[in-house]
């Protein structure tokens, strides 16, 4: 799971080494990556929103 989160984070930044990537794509199912990606996107939006809220106050 940690590996999935790490990979998704790497994807957000657009940086990942070929070795890790090969490892990710060994796994058969893309679903953990998709679900984690969606969740992380929501988390990301919430983080930016709270930064905006904090900055506005």
């Amino acid at each position: 799971m940690l590996q999935v989160i790490k990979s998704v984070l790497a994807a957000f930044l657009g940086v990942q080494s070929e070795k890790n990537r090969q490892q990710d794509f060994q796994s058969r199912s893309p679903w953990p990556f998709i679900v984690t990606g969606v969740v992380m996107t929501l988390v990301f939006v919430l983080v930016v929103a709270s930064v905006a809220r904090w900055a506005a106050s």
Partner: peptide, 17 residues
């Protein structure tokens, strides 16, 4: 190549917000 794919996906996701 991979970061191209990821960057495209991030641009697409960001484009909704």
């Amino acid at each position: 190549y991979a970061s191209m794919v990821y960057a495209t996906a991030s641009i697409a996701l960001l484009s909704f917000v």
